[in-house]
Amino acid sequence: MDNVNEDDDTSLLVIIVDLNAYSWGKQVELAEQNIDSTSGSRFITLSTFFEHLVIFINAYLLLNQENQIAVISSNVGESSFIYPSNHVDTKDKSISFKISQSLNNISKHLIEEIHLTSEENSSSSSFSAAMSLALCYINRIKKDNSTIRSRILVFNISPDVSTQYIPVMNCIFSAQKQSIPVDSCILTSTDSTFLQQASHLTNGIYLRPHRQDHLGQYLLSSFLIDSYSRKFLNVPTLKTVDYRASCFCHKKIVDIGFVCSVCLSIYCKYSSSCTTCGTKFTIKFNINQLKTSSSSSSSQSENK
């Protein structure tokens, strides 16, 4: 108790909110379908989600006077800061008020922006870009305040895009190196491979709430725990993690693939040289033979 540093839970929380208009649109359908079923997963719409989020932010800021927060939106093709931002000039208001205001603004513009983007590249948000923004921001804050404990909380709704595999993994590894936990809250019915790996590698919390209408409670009881308190409180963790990697050549998630012996790049098809490090492979073998032998031996992932 005497040691001042010991009980310090001051933290910096960067929230990445997935604001993919298409995914949220699909969510509305799901929410309507599931509205009267009492069991199983229920879904919430964007506006309800914002309400839960603002309560969570309020609770987080309430816990410690010096807690800092940043909110980043991960949108189709772009990521930007929601808070802190230089657009809002309501000086005298509380932080949570500012955030909720900008969130409301965003949800209005979201529909307008849909017309600007074409259907093809809009299925998923640029998660890796948002993640990089978050890591850079944390880095900047840490320069001024080196003792602050930082973490990232990701709200995910759009499916993983395998083209983003390499940048996302790079982000995860740099978060791991700086020991920044990446917490993930999945709002769809399917797990996200990227975020499972991110949370697992960085000792973060991975949770897919079964009843999203109680999201606020999930947030308060699990995601509010700062990285200091995680040392002594039990937190929900994953039992099984999908570790499958995606190949470097076609960005497909592969169960079995070829691994470069020099740089460990993964390929789904055999090629005579590694495109990443340029190593030429001299060994020749019959690919058909390999396929039959490997499928009979095991079906497990090769690069676990």
């Binding site: 839970d9 609770a59 308060l220 509010l224």
Partner: peptide
């Protein structure tokens, strides 16, 4: 203390 804060937040609901 941090631990007590977390407990309180859980008990809120």
């Amino acid at each position: 203390p941090p631990r007590a804060k977390q407990y309180l937040m859980r008990l809120l609901v």
